[in-house]
């Protein structure tokens, strides 16, 4: 992260005095810049997170008697949760959804696209790029509607398969998880593609040419040169899309409502149902807390990645 620019900055600030108070003064100065962000984050982000820890231990509900007076119930929400088979299902579904749509789907497809598009005909690049980015630019809700009809019994996919004398398949019932995974890949791949494109553009050509002279094959070059030199991007991208995918709600909820039989009920969907369909806000918050903890685990992982990157 230390660019030459930063080094020169360092010198500039360092020459202004090494006293402790100067750090404080600089922080104060920085605070002016940081203030609007800190205020927003403090009220609307840190506040609710702290409240999560409180509400998760109450029986708060949206309606019914416990909407009037909220009672502290200890770990009851958590014991309920761990006894609830739907919770275990939702945890597993979340992991499957993450692995398939974010880690394998978006990341790998994005990388392949970026690789294929290198030094190709500009028109083909533009056509493919636009098509992929259309998926990203399409709002999540519309994505969901588009895919519900795409996968429906008389939908586009079955029409296509019919040409090859195949089907029809009730995709949303038979392969609901695959359906939401595909929808999410469609929506998210452009992001990974753009990240990798930028990173690949930054790999100096000379190294490649040198390797070619040495007689390294395609795959060898890919493994030994390309991938190591964009390692940063891979790890960053991996974690960013993983965390983004962890919170996906509107897409799944609109497409399948978590069904059939909980087969697409990821944790955000499960949380929503408990909190806003069954009106058990406290229980919903307890589920949120677990979701938050998973997020925290991933971000610690993330931070570790970055630390090794900086060495």
């Amino acid at each position: 992260m230390d660019t030459t620019a930063e080094t020169s900055m360092k010198q500039k600030w360092n020459t202004q005095g090494k006293k402790k108070s100067s750090n404080k003064r600089k922080w104060l100065q920085a605070l002016i810049f940081l203030l609007p962000s800190l205020l927003l984050l403090g009220i609307f982000f840190a506040g609710p997170i702290i409240m999560t820890f409180y509400f998760a231990f109450t029986d708060m509900s949206l309606t019914g008697a416990s909407a009037q007076n909220i009672q502290y119930v200890g770990f009851q929400n958590f014991t309920n949760m761990f006894q609830d088979p739907s919770f275990k299902t939702s945890f597993m579904k979340t992991m499957v959804f993450l692995l398939m749509s974010a880690i394998l789907g978006q990341q790998v497809l994005g990388f392949i696209l970026a690789m294929l598009m290198r030094e190709k005909n500009a028109t083909v690049r533009r056509i493919t790029g636009t098509a992929v980015i259309a998926g990203w630019v399409t709002p999540e809700i519309i994505c969901a509607f588009a895919f519900v009809t795409f996968f429906s019994d008389n939908g586009t996919l079955n029409h296509l398969l019919n040409i090859f004398n195949f089907g029809p398949v009730s995709w949303l019932y038979t392969f609901p998880m695959a359906a939401v995974v595909i929808a999410n890949i469609w929506h998210g791949t452009a992001y990974s593609m753009m990240m990798f494109q930028a990173a690949l553009d930054g790999v100096p050509k000379e190294i490649h040419e040198a390797a070619m002279v040495d007689g390294a094959g395609r795959w060898q070059r890919l493994w030994r040169i390309t991938i190591p030199s964009i390692k940063n991007t891979i790890s960053t991208n991996l974690v960013v899309i993983t965390l983004g995918t962890l919170g996906v709600f509107s897409l799944i909820y609109t497409m399948t409502g978590g069904g059939p039989a909980n087969s697409t009920s990821t944790m955000p969907v499960f949380m929503y149902k408990q909190a806003f369909v069954n009106y058990q806000l406290g229980y919903g918050t307890a589920i949120s807390l677990i979701l938050l903890l998973i997020g925290i685990t991933f971000s610690l992982l993330y931070i570790k990645f970055l630390k090794t990157d900086q060495e």
């Binding site: 949206l62 309606t63 909407a67 009037q68 009106y279």
Partner: peptide
């Protein structure tokens, strides 16, 4: 009933 109990 739920909304009545909630005092709504």
């Amino acid at each position: 009933d739920a909304d009545a109990k909630a005092g709504y």
